[in-house]
Write a protein that binds this DNA or RNA. Structure first.
Lengths: 235, 235
DNA sequence: ACCTGAACACCGTTCAAGT
DNA sequence: ACCTGAACACCGTTCAAGT
């Protein structure tokens, strides 16, 4: 337990002080804390305590807290079953996009780590691969397909962020909502639509259907391909 | 300076200990710190120090740190000139959406406050008003228009979040990027597109054109209206 | 090589007391 | 009514020293 196989070198490490904690232990503990209490409960000190070491011992295995969180993400995607996809590329694309939203809404804490910006989990790459591949099959150039993927990802990500914000505010009974209560009668002149919508603002949030929206977005993004597919098939 | 006009009551406050700090002072200081050093530099203790009071004095004027940040946002939109909009509703919608992205990319710290989820700044409401109104003019029902606005907002918000993440990582010379360096030759079989794109991954980010993407998204979202406009004009 | 201990420079917020 | 002082329960990270 004090040594660790080194892929490539083929030799066990024998020099220096033996390890007391493994990087994997640290990541496992962080993952459990997140699952049970949320990302905001993760701190270097807390993880260290639960792993049975001082805070500083962690810095021997991870560069900083951001890296620990990024590692925590690794392998997450593998825990979700990969869905069966339809044959038509446009439908494959859409199904994959909706699937991204579905799995992430079950693990909303991931959003904070994802916003650090790096792709870290190889098991998750089949989704951009599928979306980009399908977009190309629909007539987009590789570059257009990549940009389309980004746009789709932004819709999914944004929807999840504000979905979570709503859930958080709903959970806090002390909250005093700013909008739409601060609209006055004078505002109705300059802001007729907003005033009209104000009454069932909360309710309308519940009616937002991500699959329906993604369908419209995807169709918009693929139109470029349909138009030019026969004229310029390369990027 | 020790009293404050009370709108509605019409009487100056004369009871109790005179005020030493005004809520507006607190917000102003917070805004300056954000402008000069970023949101992460704002703390109750720091603001209190610069306003010349103890941390706890702030809690007499704002409920907590979140409320302070929300107040900081108020009036932000008024500092940006409102653009001239074209006559055609589809173009008005698109121009407004791009404008949202443009002004927010100049004040990226706002993103963190916006993700708290509340609309707080009345001066910013002309943008959703314009987008929703134009969408209705293009044939969407009010409900469809509201949902379309949300989707557009998610694209704008997502693009800004990851744009900022890229800028942050680019500023940190110590960073070791995970993707695409961790792709092996075996991965090329399962992930041909991702492997293909890996070479100019960074470069392709720079080529992402938000206006072009929003145009496709908007057209996708408006199609529903064009199809059904003559059949079912109400929600 | 790996880990500890002490320290630095911070946080948000509660509570009781003062003016 | 408004503000202070002290305290509670935390943070991430650096640095020098120990095994």
């Amino acid at each position: 337990m004090t040594d660790k196989g080194q892929a490539g070198s083929g030799r066990k490490r024998t020099v220096g002080r033996p390890r007391r904690i493994e990087a994997q232990q640290i990541v496992d503990v962080a993952r459990r804390i997140i699952r049970e209490e949320g990302v905001e409960a993760v701190s270097m000190r807390r993880v260290a305590k639960e792993v049975g070491a001082t805070p500083m011992a962690l810095y021997h295995h991870v560069r900083d807290k951001d890296e620990l969180l990024l590692l925590t993400l690794q392998g997450m995607a593998a825990t979700f079953p990969r869905p069966a996809l339809p044959a038509d590329p446009r439908d494959r694309l859409l199904t994959t996009a909706v699937h991204m939203h579905t799995i992430l809404s079950e693990v909303p804490w991931v959003l904070d780590v994802l916003s650090l910006g790096d792709l870290t989990d190889k098991e998750a790459l089949w989704m951009p691969e599928e979306i980009i591949g399908s977009a190309i099959a629909c007539g987009l150039t590789p570059t257009q397909a990549l940009h389309a993927y980004r746009t789709i990802w932004y819709v999914v990500y944004g929807a999840l962020v504000f979905q979570r914000a709503d859930a958080r505010r709903a959970a806090d009974p002390e909250r005093r909502p700013f909008f739409p209560t601060f609209l006055t009668e004078e505002d109705a002149v300059a802001l007729p639509r907003m005033t009209e919508m104000a009454a069932n603002w909360q309710e309308s949030k519940g009616r937002y259907d991500i699959a329906e929206q993604l369908e419209a977005v995807v169709d918009g993004l693929l139109r470029k391909g349909r138009r030019h597919a026969s004229q310029s098939p390369n990027s």
